[in-house]
């Protein structure tokens, strides 16, 4: 057919430890985006939480920065087949945001500035498995990589790590987000190659 996407070119390193099936390792950090890049100043940024009962919480930048902070080293795996190993981030564990929240919900839908959404089981974002990160490689997270704050869920394909994140809704039943409603897997585990739904 002659319409195979060229994708991103990187050194082809396959079958390495830590590299899921069908992935190759790149030293670059490709910028993937399905829409315009929102420019959100930290003073304007707010993160909101809403539970299934309609109760909510909000964090502005200063309050968010007063939450516990963690340094994270993680491998990234993009559904377009590149992986980037050993990346360094700093941010707030999702556990800290959900601490003390009264919920029976089993799923979360994250919202971003610009309209992007992605769904995740709560079990995939709690227990030290996901963060709201604001630094990459020791510097403020730039807008093209999701700054001021993005979700980081490194054990799932990178489309789950929503850029420009602005809120989370806790929901009793799973509800597909932007890519999930367009044919991508509801869960997105790279080790199981959960690429498409």
């Amino acid at each position: 057919m002659g319409i195979v996407s060229s994708g991103f070119q990187g050194r082809r390193k396959r079958d390495l430890p830590g590299v899921p099936p069908g992935q190759y390792v790149t030293e670059d950090f490709p910028v993937l985006s399905a829409g315009p890049t929102p420019r959100i100043e930290r003073d304007d940024w707010v993160f909101s939480l809403r539970t299934e009962s309609g109760t909510g919480r909000h964090w502005d930048w200063n309050v968010f920065m007063s939450l516990p902070q963690e340094d994270v080293t993680a491998d990234l795996h993009c559904v377009t087949s590149w992986s980037k190993l050993g990346t360094h981030w700093r941010g707030v564990p999702v556990d800290a945001v959900l601490n003390g929240v009264d919920t029976q919900a089993e799923f979360a839908l994250f919202y971003s500035y610009g309209g992007y959404t992605t769904n995740l089981p709560l079990s995939d974002v709690l227990g030290g498995r996901a963060w709201l990160v604001h630094e990459f490689d020791g510097a403020d997270l730039p807008p093209e990589h999701g700054g001021p704050v993005r979700l980081l869920v490194p054990h799932l394909y990178l489309w789950k790590s929503a850029k420009w994140v602005r809120g989370v809704e806790l929901i009793p039943q799973d509800r597909p987000g932007f890519w999930e409603s367009r044919g991508y897997h509801l869960h997105g585990d790279p080790w199981r190659e959960e690429r498409y739904g």
Partner: peptide
Amino acid sequence: WTGRPAER
């Protein structure tokens, strides 16, 4: 929650 249209 859908976000304002992001500026280009």
